[in-house]
Design a protein around this nucleic acid. Structure first.
Lengths: 344, 344
DNA sequence: ATGAAAGCGCTAACAA
DNA sequence: TTGTTAGCGCTTTCAT
């Protein structure tokens, strides 16, 4: 930010007024072709570029959107980001990406910081900690100030704004039903507690699928860990003490670890145990065997969120016109489940 | 961006001048404790926050840094981003993240767009296409304007700026030597052409290791594909026609696919074939067996780049004081290679 | 201790 | 067709 030329300098050099330069550069009809050309040539020669800051200050629009990501190492979020990125680029918006690392404080701080003129709106995913604490004031304050927010993936009823979510309960239900249909009767549930929203709701789907079909959920078959440290041991333990013929794993890592464990024990997948993963990331494709997985359309989620937000910003829809979009999921059949001929 | 209060409004409401408000809010000694309190209280009550844009316009400093990422789905880059993010946050900088998707045009466009007052400097990784085309004007123009750039991972001699790189040749050499030391004599090289810089240099290391130890590189053992579509077939083909007892895979996916292929063929890893991966991402940990891999310290790379850039921005080091930092790598031994007792 | 005025880079209403 | 002026939100001399 230094040797950049300003309209003032152009005006001085060409002995015209500042506004003449401004108009000429904006190709105004008011300016004669002659001076227009002189000014534009000079500007091009000196690589003039308008100062974005000054423009934004003027327009009260920055053409940039703040993106809040809880964790960029998560493949799902990275893909959502790509989706957002695609439409923002198309529509001439910049994004300013902030990673909260699932921290409440970081989330509050960055959102407050950005909502001071820097951005026109937010696309955000609530951090785990915030969800746990249950304090959503920062979201509501920003909304009150008239800055639009679109929440994706993890949402909460206390925040009254546009939302784009995946139907985790239904997907969990469908995934579990798939295992049941393929003959599994003792379906274990395995999850590290990483993904709070997903976790909670897909588990609900799992339970619903069982109870609805007269299977009493077996506590011993449900494994929920805070981290992946002892995952291997715990899975082994479960297999030592229980009959298991199906596994529903919430996150990718659990799925990968599970295949490693089964492999080590000489258990055949899917012959002896079938696995369905609730997360379809890179791992699912490359485990042995590749995992049948629920695909949540991350890219689509990002696109929808960005489109919605930009429409709000550009006032194509009213600020108070709030919607919740539900993105469907799709079960991607790979080799960790038996082929099913009866579709449902 | 609407109902936010400004100093002007505070001044009006409290019947003082704008400059008094400004000074009071900045806790200036010039203002009496009495008015200071009145103003500060009023500001707090109305949740006054200074407009970042106006401040930046004034200071000619935005306290935000532009990050150029070729691809966010790449685990390495995502980790670099985390490293950057850590130090920028600590030092009170924002980052505005742009993904080029390896496109030259996107890279040029976003960098031009941001270098107009929006950011104080760049941390960038050159896109594949740019590297292929060999046109680096946009970088040099920005540098000429006095905007500092720190390049990471993929660099080029034609751009004269700070750089943070990994010593890929040496790492490729070391990885190959590791395989040799563990008894491999027919080491295949497998890579999709994804990572241009990495690819090129680590392959050089591989070749160097072989020739230096009197092994003539065997063309049939070197597989370089543009994409992963036919990877499985090609690996199988290679194994059909050649004796192979070691594999050096450049990227994770190749490594994962290789284990799948070997597994399917009933080849034991590491007993029959050892594998070293040049990329240590999530996949390497969860394949069967987990892969011995070269760990490039992505997080460190990000931290160094960010620290360097901020020092430049804050003029703690001179603009023309250019350095290239080389980040060492570390071989992480997992189960895809035989245990080695002779360290080297 | 307080305020008036200029300026950061730009646009736009109005005047000439 | 060109220029003057005010203003976006803020800081910072320089009066008062």
């Amino acid at each position: 930010m230094s040797k950049r030329i300003t309209i003032k300098q152009i005006a001085l050099a060409l002995q015209v007024s500042i506004s003449t330069v401004s108009k000429a550069l904006n190709d105004s009809y008011e300016i004669s072709d002659d001076t227009k050309k002189r000014i534009q040539d000079y500007a091009k020669l000196h690589k003039y570029k308008p100062n974005t800051l000054a423009l934004s200050l003027q327009n009260k629009k920055t053409k940039t959107i703040g993106i809040i990501l809880p964790n960029i190492l998560n493949y799902y979020f990275a893909r959502v980001l790509r989706g957002i990125e695609k439409v923002t680029t198309e529509k001439g918006y910049n994004i300013i990406t902030c990673i909260t690392n699932e921290s409440f404080k970081k989330e509050v701080d960055t959102m407050e910081m950005l909502s001071n003129g820097t951005i026109d709106g937010f696309i955000a995913c609530i951090s785990e900690e915030t969800l746990r604490i249950g304090n959503f004031e920062h979201f509501n304050m920003i909304l009150e100030e008239g800055t639009p927010i679109v929440l994706y993936d993890r949402v909460h009823a206390d925040i009254n704004c546009d939302k784009v979510v995946t139907d985790n309960v239904k997907s969990g239900y469908k995934a579990t039903r798939f295992l049941m249909k393929s003959g599994c009767e003792n379906i274990a549930l395995i999850s590290t507690d990483e993904e709070i929203n997903i976790g909670q709701f897909s588990v609900n789907g799992y339970l619903k699928a069982l109870t609805k079909h007269d299977i009493t959920p077996n506590e011993n078959l449900i494994l929920r860990l805070d981290d992946e440290t002892h995952l291997k041991e715990r899975i082994n333990e479960m297999l030592d003490n229980n009959k298991v013929d199906g596994m529903f794993v919430i996150d990718e890592v659990s799925g990968a670890v599970a295949t490693q464990v089964l492999n080590a024990r000489g258990i055949k997948v899917p012959e002896d145990i079938s696995i369905v993963s609730f997360t379809n990331g890179i791992l699912s494709r490359y485990t042995i065997p590749p995992l049948t997985a629920v695909n949540r359309f991350a890219h689509t989620t990002g696109e929808i969120a960005a489109t919605r937000l930009i429409d709000k910003i550009e006032e194509k829809i009213e600020f108070d016109d709030i919607t919740t979009e539900i993105v469907k999921t799709k079960l991607v059949e790979r080799e960790s489940t038996k082929k099913l001929f009866i579709k449902f």
